[in-house]
């Protein structure tokens, strides 16, 4: 399946990916309203230290620890798309998945309550918002084979 890979040598650490991720997951889909009126947790994390930075999202692992750890079966890997996603209804907010994920890419939804925020590859859009909007082509959506070795 296609996953998002980061080219850290070209990541600017500008965090626009985050901005567009939030917009994409907002109710309004309006960049200003999404940030000023809604409270949405970005589905990705930008790791940085000194000059090095890169954006990290859910890897949609084949053998996903989070799906195994989930106590209600809310976290599932879709057979067809390969996307690991969760069912908001069934999530009880126990956060076991957060502890289980070895990449640390599952977050608490800041707006509170139980649900978690994680990358869904913007499954409803043509391409993930972070990939489309990265100003320096530092994020790519690719089959693993092409991008072997890229973190």
């Amino acid at each position: 399946m296609k996953r998002i890979y980061a080219k850290e040598e070209y990541c600017l650490g500008c965090k626009l990916c985050e901005v567009y991720c939030v917009t994409s997951h907002s109710a309004s889909k309006d960049i200003i309203k999404a940030h000023k009126l809604e409270s949405i947790t970005p589905r990705l994390i930008i790791e940085s230290s000194d000059n090095l930075s890169f954006a990290l999202q859910c890897r949609h692992c084949d053998e996903a620890d989070c799906t195994r750890a989930c106590i209600t079966g809310a976290m599932q890997k879709d057979e067809e798309t390969g996307v690991v996603n969760y069912d908001e209804e069934r999530c009880v907010g126990c956060w076991t998945c957060i502890m289980a994920c070895s990449f640390g890419v599952i977050r608490r939804e800041q707006a509170g309550k139980k649900v978690i925020a994680k990358c869904d590859l913007c499954i409803e859009e043509e391409a993930p918002a972070c990939v489309t909007n990265c100003p320096n082509d530092a994020l790519v959506l690719a089959e693993r084979a092409e991008e072997e070795g890229v973190q």
Binding site: L12, C14, K15, E18, V19, I31, I32, H35
Partner: peptide
């Protein structure tokens, strides 16, 4: 100001 979402991209760039 009504447009700025305080993302700080400008600051970082």
């Amino acid at each position: 100001e009504s447009n700025c979402i305080e993302c700080q991209a400008c600051e970082r760039q």
